[in-house]
Amino acid sequence: MTAYAFEGGVSRDARPNAIEITEQQYQDGIEGMLAGKLVTINGGFAVIDPPKPEPEPEPEPEPVDLAAYARDLSWRTRVDGTTINSVPVRLDDGSLALINGMVGLAERDAERTFNFDSAAGIVTLTAAQAITFGEAIGVWVQLTFDRRAAVLLAIEAGSLTTTAEIDAAFADVTAPWSAA
């Protein structure tokens, strides 16, 4: 029985552009195709490994909204808090509300003491200490807002162009900073 090879396979039927092959070549072609190989007639009958697929191109990185990134980092910096007189203070919105309430009570009752629950444990504050503590926290929170404003201006001016530069700008909000 006659066998034929064409670009991509083998057959017992004649096809356009096919070449006649031996029975052994026909069997080799069938076995090769079952094993994932390709039949080619370019330059004569051969069973070859398929070409390696082209690697997928790296996707283009999504553009980063630097202003949104800076706003989020400013918020996370504030929430992570700071340390005031060796007392670590987390400053999410709930904590700030509780601290402001403590300061309000301290302003109305100078004889009162307050138990403040910090990451280091309970800290007892006099009314005067609570007011000073609240003021120090207010100053620090304002520093985070001031830094955010300066960073947003630097982004708008084009002097901050990467998230790494923004991270560096917020690394220490208590230190002086300039985008230049």
Rank of each mutant, 00 (worst) to 15 (best):
A3N: 12
A5Q: 07
F6I: 12
E7L: 11
V10K: 02
D13W: 06
I19Q: 14
I21A: 10
E23K: 12
E23H: 14
E23I: 07
Q27C: 04
Q27F: 04
G29R: 10
E31Y: 07
L34E: 12
L34P: 00
G36D: 11
K37I: 01
K37P: 01
L38W: 10
V39Q: 09
T40M: 09
F45K: 08
F45P: 09
I48Q: 06
D49P: 07
P50H: 02
P51V: 06
K52W: 02
P55T: 11
P55W: 09
P57M: 05
P57S: 06
E60R: 08
P61F: 02
E62A: 12
L66H: 09
L66P: 14
A67F: 01
A67R: 15
A68Q: 15
Y69H: 10
A70L: 06
A70Y: 06
L73K: 13
L73M: 08
R76H: 06
T77I: 02
T77W: 00
D80Q: 04
T83D: 15
S86Y: 05
S86D: 14
V87S: 07
V87R: 15
R90K: 12
R90P: 01
L91I: 04
D92I: 00
D92F: 00
D93F: 00
A97H: 02
L98I: 04
L98H: 03
V103M: 11
L105H: 07
A106Y: 02
E107G: 11
A110P: 12
A110V: 05
T113N: 13
N115M: 09
F116M: 00
F116A: 00
V123W: 03
T124P: 00
T126V: 07
T126D: 10
A127I: 01
I131N: 02
T132W: 00
F133G: 06
G134V: 06
A136G: 06
I137A: 08
I137R: 09
G138S: 12
V141M: 07
F145S: 15
D146W: 06
R148A: 13
A150V: 09
A150R: 14
L152P: 10
L152T: 06
A154G: 11
A154W: 03
E156W: 05
G158S: 13
S159K: 13
T161L: 09
T161Y: 00
A164L: 12
E165T: 09
I166Q: 08
D167V: 01
D172A: 10
D172K: 02
A175N: 06
A175F: 03
A175I: 01
W177P: 05
A179N: 03
A180S: 14
A180R: 10
